[in-house]
């Protein structure tokens, strides 16, 4: 396995060590990775790291609504990032929001990756009418902006968690399909695939065990950048009130909720969830940019 990937030039010979030394060439990317890991940690352990549970009605007091950042309530609890219109601690709401946003983004990313890779790899491997048709659909879909696709899907199906995830998957799968096909076409013509075919291995085995491992690098790059895109798109849809329901308050919903208070000067209700969203997206994008530079032999200086 290691030897095979090395000859394809995708992952350098000494594996992880070489990968890390390439990756850590950019201090920005290392910093971004660290920030992303912190965000991920917070998202996973939100119930533990949050000062309060913002959706536990017992711990939320309407008397505390719209407090400025750094205020205290009568019991001496500090709201570092203030409270929203219902008296929820913004910091806790953001931690829980990260959980929802990252969860939806990651889940839709994984499903889209699986569908897209399956279509792209089979298209490249089998070719013929199936390839023509699949790639025609991919082309047409990619010529329309993602926000429009998502709006159409939500207009047809209505809002909700599964529907938002479906919309995000349908928007993204084409990117994965295109990337998977492009790299699989290169791999397909290499000698090891011919060798595997001579051994009369099954198509499924050749695709999954021989071609796919060598197409992983570009898919990982597309995956990071697309996940950031999905998180941003989900936030946009939820902000517009078309994405997640209020029972699953993602960062986009928090921002949307705070929008109305903006005009009265209560900036923190909208701004801080936005900052959290921005940090998440930028850190993923920076990591993705660096991955792309590492994996792209053309750009290696």
């Amino acid at each position: 396995m290691a030897g095979k990937t090395a000859t394809s030039g995708v992952v350098p010979a000494s594996g992880w060590q070489k990968f890390w030394s390439d990756f850590s060439e950019s201090p920005t990317a290392v910093g971004a990775l660290f920030v992303f890991l912190v965000v991920l940690f917070i998202a996973i352990f939100a119930p533990i790291v949050s000062p309060t549970n913002p959706y536990d009605l017992a711990s939320v007091d309407i008397m505390n609504s719209r407090l400025e950042p750094g205020s205290q309530d009568f019991e001496g609890n500090v709201f570092w990032l203030g409270t929203d219109g219902a008296g929820r601690d913004m910091l806790s709401a953001i931690f829980y929001g990260l959980r929802v946003s990252l969860g939806v983004g990651a889940l839709s990313g994984v499903v889209a990756l699986i569908i897209g890779a399956a279509v792209g790899l089979s298209a490249a491997y089998f070719g013929g009418r199936f390839e023509t048709l699949a790639m025609r659909i991919v082309d047409i879909q990619l010529s329309f902006p993602s926000i429009l696709m998502a709006l159409v899907i939500l207009a047809v199906f209505g809002k909700g968690v599964e529907k938002t995830i479906i919309a995000l998957v349908l928007v993204q799968w084409a990117y994965y399909a295109r990337a998977a096909r492009a790299s699989a076409l290169v791999e397909k013509n290499k000698e090891y695939v011919e060798a595997a075919q001579c051994l009369a291995l099954g198509d499924r085995r050749i695709i999954l065990h021989h071609i796919m491992p060598n197409c992983l690098a570009p898919l990982i790059v597309v995956g990071t950048l697309q996940t950031a895109h999905a998180i941003s798109l989900e936030a946009t849809l939820s902000f517009l009130g078309l994405g997640l329901p209020i029972t699953e308050p993602s960062l986009g919903l928090l921002i949307g909720n705070g929008f109305e208070f903006m005009y009265s000067g209560d900036y923190w209700i909208s701004i801080f969830p936005g900052v959290a969203l921005l940090i998440t997206i930028v850190s993923i994008n920076l990591v993705g940019d660096q991955l792309r530079d590492i994996f792209n032999p053309r750009l290696q200086r």
Binding site: S232, A235, F239, G252, G274, L278, I281
Partner: peptide, 22 residues
């Protein structure tokens, strides 16, 4: 430009309103 690429449009809009209007 990376920042501009990453910032969700709607949030930038909110920031612009907060800064220049409010």
């Amino acid at each position: 430009s990376i920042l501009g690429f990453s910032m969700p449009t709607f949030w930038v809009g909110i920031i612009l309103i907060m800064f220049f209007s409010v």
